[in-house]
Amino acid sequence: MYIKLFLRLTLAIGFLSAIADRFGMWSQEKSAWGNWDNFLEYTQLLNPWFPDAVINPIAIAVTIAELLLAIFLIIGFKTTFVAKLSGVILLTFALAMTISTGIKAPLDYSVFTAAAAAFGLSLIKEKFFEIDTLIHTEKQ
């Protein structure tokens, strides 16, 4: 049960850390992007087939998705579905990184590992400190 909570929290914190980075909340020495403009450049690098006009909307959508996934993972809302969706997003990101920049970056940043952790989380059926437990109890 503690493993499930650990997986939920670490995945959520990973999403929140990435969001904080793109808004300059980490120091420049510890930052991957450091600001929104650098994040947009990286988004363009990973999505070269999209026109420049849609890069900002894609970056906004991904940021909102990561924020919602993080919140839902923390509170344990629809954990199985959210974990699968997190795995899909992380795997998509890892594959885009691999295609655009090579295999080293997604391996160094453990993006494949995070995707695997998310998919693994989706397989744990026991509920532990999850709002889903309260929702399920109210329906009975």
Rank of each mutant, 00 (worst) to 15 (best):
Y2N: 14
R8G: 02
R8K: 11
T10W: 06
L11D: 01
A12F: 03
G14C: 04
F15M: 06
F15K: 01
L16Y: 03
S17H: 11
A18H: 14
A20G: 15
D21K: 08
R22Y: 06
R22M: 13
M25T: 00
W26T: 07
S27L: 04
Q28L: 10
S31H: 01
A32C: 00
N35A: 05
D37F: 10
E41V: 11
Y42R: 13
N47Q: 06
P48H: 05
W49K: 11
W49Y: 15
P51G: 03
I55H: 04
I55L: 09
A59K: 02
A61C: 09
V62T: 12
T63G: 02
I64F: 08
E66S: 05
L69G: 12
L69I: 15
L69F: 15
F72C: 13
L73D: 07
I75L: 15
T79Q: 13
K84H: 12
K84E: 11
G87Y: 03
L90K: 01
L91I: 08
L91Y: 09
L91F: 15
T92M: 15
A94Q: 07
L95K: 01
A96H: 06
I99M: 10
T101H: 02
D108V: 06
Y109H: 12
S110W: 06
F112G: 02
A115F: 07
A117R: 01
F119C: 07
G120N: 10
L123T: 12
I124P: 02
K127Q: 14
F129W: 08
E130M: 08
E130W: 05
E130N: 07
I135Q: 04
I135G: 01
H136D: 14
H136W: 08
E138T: 06
K139F: 07
K139N: 11
K139H: 11
